[in-house]
């Protein structure tokens, strides 16, 4: 009985850790704290954004492909210093994450998202919907993404995709 209780407790703990990671991750983006964004990842990591169509057809190239934390920092640096785009913000709304497999170590988690884009003019649009296919490394109290695949449902992106999803 006690064993069952403790198993349930660790499942709840794990679910909490994942939800907390998701919440902090999207808040950092939506609050324009983009410099913190790379810190949600392990040093060696994979972050990519692609379309559901590419994914279904096994095609490797999508919008963004980064294979390390320094590459994520480079992207933010480019956004802040180099790239030209109109001021805009996102608002992420996530589903409850589902732990697909794993209980400790690296777990596979799937979460749906909807992202609204709010332009400086006030224009608000539904910018992207899709799913995160995540590999999350759980290390004690710490949870970090070792892989985050952002699979957009549509193949279309309006105007440009500057801020990460």
């Amino acid at each position: 009985m006690e064993t069952l209780q403790s198993a349930t407790q660790s499942a709840v703990d794990l679910q909490f850790k994942v939800q907390d990671l998701n919440a902090r991750y999207t808040e950092a983006i939506d609050d324009d704290r983009l410099e913190e964004w790379p810190d949600f990842f392990t040093d060696k990591c994979l972050y990519r954004i692609t379309t559901a169509e590419n994914e279904a057809n096994g095609l490797p190239i999508g919008f963004i492909y980064a294979t390390s934390k320094p590459m994520l920092r480079d992207r933010i640096k480019a956004l802040r210093q180099a790239n030209v785009y109109e001021a805009q913000r996102y608002r992420h709304v996530l589903s409850v994450p589902r732990i697909v497999s794993g209980q400790s170590g690296v777990i596979h988690v799937r979460t749906s998202f909807m992202v609204a884009r709010i332009m400086h003019t006030g224009e608000t649009m539904l910018f992207a919907t899709g799913r995160y296919e995540d590999r999350i490394r759980i290390d004690g109290a710490q949870a970090l993404f070792s892989e985050k695949s952002v699979i957009i449902d549509s193949r279309q992106v309006d105007t440009l995709l500057a801020i990460p999803l």
Binding site: N54, P60, I61, G62, Q156, V157, T159
Partner: peptide, 8 residues
């Protein structure tokens, strides 16, 4: 073909 997408 390695991938594709579109931009509106």
């Amino acid at each position: 073909v390695l991938g594709g997408y579109s931009q509106v």
